[in-house]
Nucleic acid binder design. Structure first.
Lengths: 162, 162
DNA sequence: CGCTTCTTTCAGAAATTTGTGAAGATGAGG
DNA sequence: CCTCATCTTCACAAATTTCTGAAAGAAGCG
């Protein structure tokens, strides 16, 4: 087997860019999206800063900024190769889409804003009622998502084994 | 009752801006967010272009652009007062958060990109397997969300009556 | 028809965001 | 300690986005 490269870098790059484009369209910033897509399509599920910089043709500063964002969103984690200042950034295959549904903080803030709206506009007014209903929706979804993720874990074991 | 105004414009405005800010943080553009928040907190659930312009202090052009975006996302609908060129933009209290969960098109595109990734990187490779799993997750969520919305409708009737 | 009232489109000014290079930190290893 | 390899921060240039005023389009109504 002369297949030592193992993968066609061009095919990888093509996928990375096209998946990143979807993420961008869904609202993610460009650099985080590209970095994330690159990690997702790496065999290890992890890359160093230098590797990312090379594949994506971006500066160390851009890697740093993008990774910081992804880490804040809990979409990647950072690892340190022991005895080296070099970091590697890893996407835990499960972890990340859990983060996707973990709008936890976002939902909580929306709920807060809506509660304030209900009371400041008046619970008896039409606008107040509309907002109370919206609030109820968020509260409902909040609970449902947790249950859904639990079902996913079961489903996942079924499909791929524990 | 000298309460003819009915609502404190300042309180309304304060809520509108704060709710819009949450939407912006969640990735919506500023103008659409403000317009949407204004509609949501109006008693009628509908406003004319002129009313929106006045409350938000923006030009007709900005209203036009924002509304177009919201309509594309199915978050508001346009109505025509019969016998007038004046439009009013309405948020149907139910409709809009159904639109929120209706990432339908978005999810489909992600699934497409992932499928392409699985085949172009190789279903047998580690990266390919990771993407196959991610794909399975999206397919799962897709189905779950429909079921969840159905439960919401029931729950909603329970809370607020049909 | 043509006037009037609204809405949309468009080009450009202003504000914001993004990515870079360069300088500064941080820590491993001699 | 000093050096080397890395990562991070920062100021700025470039690209992009956002909003506006002005002009053009559309539709009711006399």
């Amino acid at each position: 087997m002369t297949d030592e490269v193992g993968r066609d870098p061009e095919a990888v790059s093509k996928f990375v860019e096209s998946f990143a484009a979807q993420l961008v369209e869904a609202g993610m910033q460009r650099m985080p999206a590209r970095i994330f897509a690159a990690l997702l399509s790496s065999d290890e599920g992890a890359m160093t800063s230098a590797e990312l910089g090379e594949q994506l043709q971006i500066s160390p500063a851009a890697v740093s900024g993008g990774v910081r964002y992804l880490a804040q969103q809990h979409m990647v984690s950072r690892e340190r190769e022991p005895g080296s200042r070099r970091e590697r950034y890893r996407v835990h295959s499960n972890q990340w889409y859990e983060a996707l549904t973990n709008r936890e903080a976002v939902i909580k803030r929306w709920e807060g804003a809506l509660r304030e709206g209900v009371s400041s506009l008046g619970a008896g007014t039409p606008a107040g009622r509309r907002m109370a209903e919206t609030l109820a929706f968020f509260e409902f979804v909040d609970g449902e998502i947790a249950a859904m993720m639990e079902r996913w874990r079961l489903h996942r074991e079924e499909l791929f084994g524990a």
